[in-house]
């Protein structure tokens, strides 16, 4: 079963075409790292999957169910909004800037979506949240406000918050780019742990070492298309495409 599938996905912002026909299929338990220069469409691709951005053209399937089908920026078929919402919550998302809710304590950040979206019992939500917080190593911070945490801790809370909705796929949009170098390790360790537990993951990252270590597949994007893909060894160590080589030369 494929967890997510993009078929000829295009996305334009006004006259600027950011995605120029992307095809991608991710299977269950697969860890896919997406690399590429800024502006190559990596983040936009993730944001289209959970409909933070609507695609201009193409089809998106989540767990083999059609979640979006559009052409010329218009819906080609009416998909029930409840279905769309439940498909999109199969995708958890972690942002570059954490985007924790500053007015809520750590535990409330983790429980709020299960409470108001899934309407589950408060006791159950809190037990689950504490489990997740201890998994990311922050259960003792549960009553703190996000502003009292370091960037690395905030990002780990953000991971717990996304996991609280029990997503089948986790998407990470440059999760360590806003962090001080000494805090990157703790976030990567959490992500590594998730990968080991079999989570399907889509990771936009500039951490080539991390990609080499945890990715099952590495995708290099350039100019709104997938330019090269393969195992970490193939793409990162022996790239075939000229553009991949020159990108890796620049960042390594």
């Amino acid at each position: 079963m494929s967890m997510v599938k993009l078929v000829n996905v295009r996305k334009s912002f006004g006259n600027l075409e950011v995605l120029k026909g992307v095809n991608l299929e991710v299977s269950q338990g697969e860890v896919v790292c997406i690399i590429g220069a800024s502006g190559s469409g990596k983040s936009t691709m993730l944001r289209c999957l959970n409909q933070l951005e609507r695609i201009s053209e193409g089809e998106i399937y989540i767990e083999d169910v059609l979640s979006d089908k559009r052409a010329n920026n218009k819906d080609l078929m009416k998909i029930d909004p409840v279905t769309v919402q439940s498909l999109c919550t199969e995708l958890g998302m972690v942002f570059q800037n954490f985007n924790l809710f500053p007015h809520l304590t750590v535990i409330d950040n983790v429980t709020i979506a299960p409470l108001i979206v899934k309407k589950i019992d408060k006791k159950i939500a809190e037990t689950r949240a504490l489990d997740l917080l201890s998994m990311v190593g922050l259960s003792e911070k549960k009553d703190e406000y996000p502003s009292r945490l370091s960037g690395g801790q905030q990002q780990r809370v953000a991971i717990a918050r996304a996991l609280a909705m029990d997503p089948k796929i986790m998407m990470f949009d440059e999760p360590t780019s806003a962090l001080d170098p000494e805090l990157v390790g703790e976030v990567l360790a959490t992500m590594r742990h998730l990968a080991e537990k079999g989570m399907t993951m889509l990771i936009v990252t500039h951490e080539i070492g991390f990609a080499r270590e945890v990715a099952d597949r590495v995708i290099f994007m350039d100019g709104g298309v997938i330019c090269e893909e393969g195992t970490p060894e193939e793409v990162l160590l022996n790239p075939k495409e000229e553009r991949t080589k020159s990108f890796l030369n620049k960042i390594l």
Binding site: L52, V117, M165
Partner: peptide, 27 residues
């Protein structure tokens, strides 16, 4: 209020109304 707050709310499955009343307006 930072636009990332609405995006994070939507990514967690909240409706516009839920995001406004529980996340944005309280801030």
């Amino acid at each position: 209020i930072d636009g990332g707050q609405m995006e994070a709310s939507k990514a967690l499955g909240m409706s516009y109304r839920q995001a406004m009343t529980k996340i944005i307006i309280p801030q």
